[in-house]
Simulated assay, not measured.
Amino acid sequence: MTDSPQQLDKRQVRLAFNRAAATYDGVAVLQREVGQRLLERLELIRLQPEWALDLGAGTGQITQALLRRYRGSRVLALDLAEAMLAQTRRAAGWWRRPRLVCGDAEQLPLADDSVDLLVSNLTLQWCNSLDRAFAEFRRVLRPGGALFFTTFGPDTLKEVRDSWAEVDGHSHTNRFIDMHDIGDALVRAGLAEPVMDVERLQLTYRDLPRLVREIKALGAHNVTAGRARSLTGRAHWRAFEQAYESRRRDGVLPVSYEVVYGHAWAPAAARQQRSGDEVRVPVDMLKRR
């Protein structure tokens, strides 16, 4: 049973991404760009993982990059949707393949202290509890292991949300969490030295039907408990179109995305120094760009 209109229906999340697997790469421009920017941040650390985990692997962009970057490492690709993992398998080169795991970020089917690097690109927004997800990340990371992730912040899809708010009281977009609340959740999970930052990106579309088609092709449409369960009527849709058209600028319709970047460490008892509640990561674990 769901407790909140913003609670995600995980069954619907899985179904949406299974359906979207074949069309995802054709429209995932933003996801690829954010993934590339996330990978660039790995250059800031000196780490040669024995096991690296791509959590929320999707069609395998990050997985393939980890295989190329860490040639001596074993790479796991984990996703909630089986069809996405099938795409990851197809994308893998014959020379080296990742291990594929179907599972939920909030209940990882992995052993304690089993991975040295956990990378997650635009997956946390599909979790109902950040505390539960980060506790799982902390559990599976080995001492001194690194976590790098991206997710969406509250300004994401604000034009869609605000336009629908002029039409009805239903939830029409998924819930997105503020960067500071994400940082607080990292601390509660016992992850060390969390670093957060945010950037705002915008896509534009010539018309609303194309915008909606692309969101559906990504599997990113609304799956909250508070969504309308009946088909959207013609009058309802026209009202939404009119509300969105009022936001047209320079001949195009904008869609905003607030991208949150974060990284943190699993405490390494043998290597870290503590002072009260402060956790310090040694300089030799970092390197300059």
Rank of each mutant, 00 (worst) to 15 (best):
residue 222 N to I: 04
residue 163 S to F: 05
residue 160 V to W: 14
residue 233 G to W: 12
residue 179 M to R: 11
residue 207 D to K: 07
residue 214 E to K: 07
residue 202 Q to K: 14
residue 185 A to G: 00
residue 167 V to G: 00
residue 208 L to Q: 14
residue 157 L to Y: 13
residue 160 V to E: 11
residue 219 G to K: 04
residue 166 E to T: 13
residue 173 T to V: 15
residue 159 E to L: 12
residue 217 A to V: 07
residue 210 R to W: 05
residue 235 A to M: 04
residue 154 P to L: 08
residue 199 E to Y: 04
residue 194 P to H: 09
residue 159 E to F: 14
residue 192 A to Y: 10
residue 215 I to G: 14
residue 233 G to K: 15
residue 230 S to L: 01
residue 202 Q to R: 15
residue 218 L to G: 02
residue 180 H to T: 12
residue 193 E to F: 04
residue 155 D to N: 08
residue 202 Q to E: 15
residue 207 D to Y: 07
residue 212 V to H: 06
residue 165 A to P: 01
residue 219 G to E: 04
residue 201 L to Q: 08
residue 213 R to K: 06
residue 207 D to L: 09
residue 166 E to G: 14
residue 185 A to M: 03
residue 206 R to G: 14
residue 222 N to W: 01
residue 162 D to G: 01
residue 159 E to T: 00
residue 198 V to G: 03
residue 179 M to D: 13
residue 226 G to A: 15
residue 156 T to R: 11
residue 170 H to C: 11
residue 187 V to Y: 10
residue 204 T to V: 11
residue 208 L to R: 14
residue 178 D to F: 00
residue 159 E to K: 05
residue 153 G to P: 06
residue 180 H to N: 09
residue 183 G to Q: 13
residue 197 D to T: 05
residue 188 R to S: 03
residue 176 F to D: 10
residue 205 Y to V: 11
residue 230 S to F: 00
residue 158 K to W: 11
residue 154 P to M: 10
residue 195 V to A: 02
residue 191 L to W: 00
residue 155 D to F: 01
residue 232 T to Q: 13
residue 212 V to I: 12
residue 231 L to W: 07
residue 188 R to G: 06
residue 218 L to S: 02
residue 179 M to P: 09
residue 183 G to S: 10
residue 230 S to T: 01
residue 210 R to C: 06
residue 180 H to K: 13
residue 152 F to C: 02
residue 188 R to L: 03
residue 194 P to Y: 09
residue 228 A to H: 10
residue 177 I to L: 13
residue 222 N to P: 07
residue 186 L to N: 10
residue 223 V to I: 15
residue 193 E to P: 01
residue 199 E to M: 05
residue 193 E to M: 05
residue 229 R to F: 09
residue 215 I to W: 05
residue 157 L to A: 08
residue 198 V to H: 02
residue 190 G to E: 08
residue 176 F to W: 12
residue 196 M to G: 10
residue 228 A to F: 01
residue 156 T to A: 06
residue 159 E to A: 07
residue 239 A to M: 05
residue 206 R to A: 13
residue 200 R to K: 12
residue 233 G to D: 11
residue 201 L to R: 12
residue 196 M to Y: 07
residue 202 Q to S: 14
residue 181 D to A: 15
residue 225 A to P: 06
residue 155 D to Q: 08
residue 174 N to L: 09
residue 183 G to N: 08
residue 232 T to R: 11
residue 217 A to N: 09
residue 155 D to M: 05
residue 221 H to E: 14
residue 224 T to E: 07
residue 230 S to R: 01
residue 237 W to E: 02
residue 182 I to P: 12
residue 192 A to L: 07
residue 234 R to K: 13
residue 177 I to P: 09
residue 203 L to Q: 03
residue 158 K to D: 11
residue 203 L to Y: 00
residue 231 L to F: 14
residue 174 N to D: 08
residue 163 S to P: 01
residue 183 G to T: 02
residue 209 P to Y: 13
residue 212 V to L: 14
residue 237 W to V: 04
residue 167 V to C: 00
residue 189 A to K: 07
residue 203 L to T: 01
residue 153 G to Q: 07
